[in-house]
């Protein structure tokens, strides 16, 4: 394989993985606080459409990113108001949120179908990314770096800071946290909002970078794989990173294989590969013989209302 092909492969992997990593990182934080938000796909779609609309109207992809964050945030706050404020069932509300996101994004996006925008493009000046090898390191847009950086920050924040500890505690035992005096619902609202902002960014990555245009259901179910990744990564940011990039790699491989006319397996089977490989690998690394995994936050998905 030529260097050019390898470079293009590597870069496609990073870009395909980024939205999944962003969305699942946001969901990981929400789930660590004990909230199961199945509306990731919906929040991503809202982010994708608000980002695209803002970019189309202002001509700036970066303003688009801001708008996407805001869109994701507002959508997640609907979820927070229902599940945390009114103690609605989280699973049902999350599913409804996704359906809402599909419909609302189609409505908002209708006037923008067929319009084009300037995509985000590489963050750093071209001079740095002239050589192919340098391009692998320095040739990406803002979000690729942001996703990687945030993963490290979130991992560190959860593990070593006091607010991170409080967030984990709230997800572990809401009653104990409440008894000690931590504001359980406020912490959870914050976690859900963070998940919303990241899901909005993840959605906007599709409409502002990967396919700079608007089409219904643009995110194509990636919100669901992001959700699954959180579970199979045992709620650990490092494994999340590995899982997201593995998924991106197998998916890119599948595209390349198709393009190269690989016909040994039917294309439908090839299309399954990223999902199968990711889940298989993450399951294998999280298996500890003879030990029950205690990775899942104990209060995940449970409604809490302070007495």
């Amino acid at each position: 394989m030529s260097t050019a092909l390898l470079v293009s492969f590597a870069m496609t992997v990073a870009m395909a993985s980024t939205p999944i990593l962003l969305a699942s990182l946001g969901e990981l934080v929400a789930e660590k606080a004990g909230v199961l938000n199945l509306g990731v796909e919906g929040m991503m779609l809202i982010g994708a459409v608000t980002g695209f609309a803002a970019a189309a109207l202002t001509g700036s992809a970066y303003l688009g990113l801001l708008a996407a964050m805001l869109g994701g945030l507002l959508t997640s706050l609907i979820f927070a108001a229902l599940t945390l404020g009114l103690s609605a069932n989280q699973v049902a509300t999350g599913l409804a949120l996704t359906i809402f996101g599909v419909g609302a994004s189609a409505l908002i996006g209708a006037p923008f179908v067929g319009r084009t925008i300037e995509r985000l493009g590489p963050l750093l000046p071209q001079a740095l990314a002239g050589h192919p090898v340098l391009r692998v390191l320095f040739g990406y847009d803002l979000l690729v770096y942001l996703a990687l950086g945030l993963t490290a920050v979130v991992a560190w924040w959860l593990r070593y800071t006091r607010p991170g500890l409080v967030l984990r505690a709230v997800g572990e035992s809401d009653t104990s946290a409440h008894a000690i005096g931590y504001p359980v619902l406020a912490v959870r609202t914050g976690a859900v909002a963070f998940g919303g902002v990241l899901a909005g960014l993840a959605g906007a990555y599709f409409s502002l970078e990967l396919t700079p245009m608007w089409a219904d259901r643009l995110t194509a179910g990636r919100g669901w794989i992001a959700l699954a990744l959180v579970v199979f990564a045992s709620w650990r940011p490092a494994r999340l990173l590995a899982g997201a990039y593995l998924f991106g790699a197998v998916m890119t491989f599948e595209l390349h294989a198709k393009a190269a006319g690989f016909a040994l397996l039917p294309p439908e089977i090839l299309a399954m590969l990223p999902y199968l490989a990711t889940i298989l690998v993450l399951t294998l690394i999280s298996v500890r013989p003879g030990r029950v995994s205690t990775a899942a936050p104990a209060c995940l998905g449970k409604a809490f209302s302070p007495a």
Binding site: L165, V166, R168, A169, E172, S176, A177, A179, I180, T294
Partner: peptide, 27 residues
């Protein structure tokens, strides 16, 4: 606690998955 009241509950306010020192820090 700000008034100087401490309490050892009958039902412990502990977090099973966290370590002893993390549980103490949370208090």
């Amino acid at each position: 606690r700000a008034l100087g009241i401490g309490m050892v509950f009958q039902h412990f306010s502990l977090f099973d998955a966290l370590t002893v020192i993390e549980n103490i820090a949370l208090g």
